[in-house]
Design a protein around this nucleic acid. Sequence first.
DNA 1: CTTGATTCCGAAAGCGCTTTCGGAATAGCG
DNA 2: CGCTATTCCGAAAGCGCTTTCGGAATCAAG
Lengths: 349, 349
Amino acid sequence: MQRVSLKFLARELGIAEGTVSRALNDYPDISEATRLRVKEAAEHYGYKANQTARRLATGVAEAVAYLMPANTNALSEPFVSQLLEGLAQSLAKRGWDLLVVQAASIEEEAETIAKLSSSGKVSGVVISRPYKQDSRIDLLRKYKMPFIVHGRSVFHDDYAWYDVDSQSAFMDAVDHLVSLGHQKIGFVGAPTYYHFAQMRLDGYRDGLKHNGLGFNENLVEIAELSDDAGERAGGSLLRSQTPPTAIICATDTQAIGVLAAIRSQGLEPGKDVSVIGYDGLAFGKHTSPPLTTMAQPLAHSGRQIGDMLLAIIDGGNPVDYQELRSAKLVRRMSDGPVRPENKTLHEEE
Amino acid sequence: MQRVSLKFLARELGIAEGTVSRALNDYPDISEATRLRVKEAAEHYGYKANQTARRLATGVAEAVAYLMPANTNALSEPFVSQLLEGLAQSLAKRGWDLLVVQAASIEEEAETIAKLSSSGKVSGVVISRPYKQDSRIDLLRKYKMPFIVHGRSVFHDDYAWYDVDSQSAFMDAVDHLVSLGHQKIGFVGAPTYYHFAQMRLDGYRDGLKHNGLGFNENLVEIAELSDDAGERAGGSLLRSQTPPTAIICATDTQAIGVLAAIRSQGLEPGKDVSVIGYDGLAFGKHTSPPLTTMAQPLAHSGRQIGDMLLAIIDGGNPVDYQELRSAKLVRRMSDGPVRPENKTLHEEE
DNA sequence: CTTGATTCCGAAAGCGCTTTCGGAATAGCG
DNA sequence: CGCTATTCCGAAAGCGCTTTCGGAATCAAG
C-alpha cells in the first residue's frame, strides 16, 4: 500500500534518507535547491509520511481523544456531535487526529483513561459532564496527561475547563418567571452527582431567594436525562398538593417530557403552566409549544475547546485556560404570565 | 510518562525483550511458567504497550476512521452520534480505535482519503450518505483500503454496505396515504446527488404508479436537509395551484419544517394535510403533532457496521457484507384520512 | 594560497515494539 | 548412553521516520 517511503524517495533522488526528511520538514541546514527538488519529488510521487513511524520517532501523538459520556441517550446527542465536529475542525488545522473512545461502563472509565495515557496514543484528552468530584480528572492529572473538561467539577481551580454559567442562567430563569407573576415555581433537576446538575439546582435556589421566595422541597424532582424521565417528574410535580404554575428544567430534553406531562393532564403548556428548558437545542423550535429555553453558546464550543487543549499541549498553563460563557433566555412559546384564576389541576378535578 | 517499557520489564525479569513480547502475545514457544511470570510482572508494573511502536512493527493500525459528512446540520445529528457510539462499541471489543475525520469541504474529501490511506493511520474506513457516484468510494477502492458504506451508491455490487431499503419504504408510505383516501400526495425530497434521495424519490414514484396515480412534477420539491429548507419547500407546495393533501418527506428533519409550513398556512397538520417523515428520530414524538415516520433500525446499525468492517479487514470478501434492512411505518399523529371537503388553501383565500 | 568559519549533506543511532532465526537445554527414543 | 527431536529462549534485524553529529565542500578573510 504505502509504496513511496522516505527510502524510496531518497534512492530516487540519490540522496540520504535523513536529508529528505529534513528537507521535507524545513530544516535550516538544507539548501534551497535540494529542498525544492525533494518537495517536488514528494509531490510527484504522492509521498505521504507514515504517521505511525513519525509518531514513534518524534514521541508526539498528534492526536487527542474525546471520552464519550458513558450513558448517552438519543435526545441529548446533538450535544455530542456538535462538540465533535468543532473539535475535529480545530484539530484538523494542525493535521491532528480525533479519537473517540467509549468506555464500556462507568466503572471502566478509569481503566480506559489509564490505558489511553500510557499507550501514547494521544497527547491530550477532553471529557464532558464531569461529576462533582471526578475520578477521571484525578487520573488524568496523575498521568500528567494534558486535558480540558467541558464543564466543571466542584474543585476546578487547577485545570482547564470550558463551561457555561448555568447557575446564574437558572437565577435568570427564575427572575423571568417571577416577573411574569409566577410564585410557585417547580424544578426538574438532574442527578446531582453531575456537578452541572448541582449548579443548576443552586441557581434555582438562588433565584428563589433573590425574589423572596421560599424553597419548597415538594417543588423539585430529580430525573434522569431523558424525555421520559422528564415526563414522569413533571407529572408528579403537577399531581402534588401544591402544583407549580411554572417549571424550570435542567435540560431541554427533560423539558420536552414535562411539556408532554402537562398536556396529558389536560393543561396547556405556556398558558396553564410555563416551562423553561436549558441548552437551546434546535429542535426546541418544533415542540408543541416551541420551547422557551436558556440557550448556551454550543455553536463553536467544540472549536474553542480544541484550541484551548492544543494550547495546553503546547506548554500552556492549564489554569490560564478556563472559560466561563453565559447562557441567555430564548423565549419561544412555553412561558407566559401566570393565569389570574391560577388554573391548576385542582380545579380540573 | 511511559515509564514501563518492554525493555524495563525485560531487565527487571532478567530475560530478553523479545521473550517478554512473545509471552505477552501468547506465542506458543514460551513456557507456561515464564508466560505467567511475565504477565504478572506486566500487571504489577502497570505495563501498557506503546501502541505506536506496536503499530509500526506489526503494520496494522488497529484503528478505523469515520468520515464525517462534510455538511452536517444540527437537527440530523442524532444520526451521527448514534452511529459513532455503535461503532466505538464494536471496535472496543478488539481494543481498536475510532478516528473521526472531518474534511474541511467536499472538495477536500478526496485529499483527506488519500492521506488517510497512505499515512497508515487506519486499517479501514466507514463513510455515510454516499452520492450517486461517489468519488470517495473510487478512491478507497484504488487505495485498496477496506471500507464499508452506510448507504449505497448507484453501482454497489462490489463493495460492502449497510443500508435501509428506503425505496420500498416510500412505496409503503404512499400506499398508506392512498389507503387513507389521499390522491394528491406531495413529496419533499433531498438533493438527488445523494443516492438515498434518488431512491426515496423513486420509491415515491413507484408508489404512485402502483396505486394508479400519475406523477405530477408540481407536487415535488427538492430541499436541503434542514428544517428550514423543509419549511420553505412545504410552503411552496401548499401555495401551488393544486396543493397536496398529504406530503411525504425524505427526512424527519424536513418533515418537521413541513409541519411548521402547514401551520403557518392556518392549516392543521394531520387533519388538513398529512405528513410522513423518514428516519424515525426520537424527537419526532414531541413535535406538534407528533410526527408519523418511516423508522429505520438506527439502533444497532453502528455496531453492525463496525462488525462488518472488521470482518472485511480480517480478509472477508466485501461482497459478502451487504446488508439491506427495512424501515417500517410508525404512526403518530401527523397522518390521517383525507378531509371529505378536501379543505385546502384555496378555500382559505 | 592558507586558515578558520560556513554551508550542506551523509551516516548512523535511535523510538518501542514484533518476529524470525538459530542454538542451548531438555526430552524422547532405541 | 548416544543420537535425534522438542522445547524454550536470546540475539538481532527490522518497521519508517527523526535528529544528532561529524566531516567534506565551499566560502570569506588574512
